[in-house]
């Protein structure tokens, strides 16, 4: 039992990463401050806004609501992995094509949540898209273009999957 720094190691975007952190270090701070992955944002104190959403072992997760120390050996995917080869992910393409953002602060979380939603439901209705993004707040767009962006991406991803 110690409040001293602990060694935390996990796979982030396919690469083994580790750092010495305090037990109170939230996953989002580990990603941003220890690893320099600043695409994952912090938009609130209350675990409500979803700007921090990442994928942890296949589970869409608010990275401000888990401690890095809990995630020894975990497999984490952040927004930075989506266009790693220089080609936009269809969801990023959708947000670009449909103008699904203004300031862009909420966008990484929106995109990560939307991808998780489409894994469960590849062809959502507009209502299902809105419900699926309940945990993501946007203070600029009024959401309509975000819904359009997800619908656009869903169609593209269904087409890619049927072509495979």
């Amino acid at each position: 039992m110690t409040t001293d720094h602990i060694h935390v190691a996990m796979t982030v975007n396919g690469v083994e990463r580790s750092a010495e952190v305090e037990p109170r270090t939230l996953l989002v701070h580990f990603l941003r401050d220890s690893l320099g992955l600043t695409g994952t944002h912090v938009g609130c104190d209350t675990s409500q806004c979803g700007a921090c959403v990442v994928d942890v072992d296949g589970v869409s997760t608010k990275s401000c609501t888990m401690f890095a120390a809990q995630l020894q050996g975990a497999n984490v995917t952040t927004i930075e992995a989506l266009a790693a080869d220089g080609t936009l992910h269809p969801m990023q393409e959708g947000f670009w094509a449909e103008h699904g953002l203004q300031c862009g602060f909420c966008t990484p979380g929106m995109i990560m949540s939307s991808i998780a939603m489409l894994k469960e439901n590849p062809d959502p209705t507009d209502d299902e898209i809105r419900e699926g993004l309940e945990g993501n707040f946007c203070r600029c767009t009024g959401y309509q273009n975000i819904v359009n962006a997800v619908r656009h991406a869903a169609a593209e991803m269904r087409e890619q999957n049927s072509a495979d």
Binding site: P23, T46, S47, C64, T65, M66, F67
Partner: peptide, 24 residues
Amino acid sequence: LLAGGHSLVPAMKLRLAAPGELID
């Protein structure tokens, strides 16, 4: 005790809760 953390961690971030030890 720390379970899903979705009540406890927000309370800790707001410093409404300040446990000295977390048992995950």
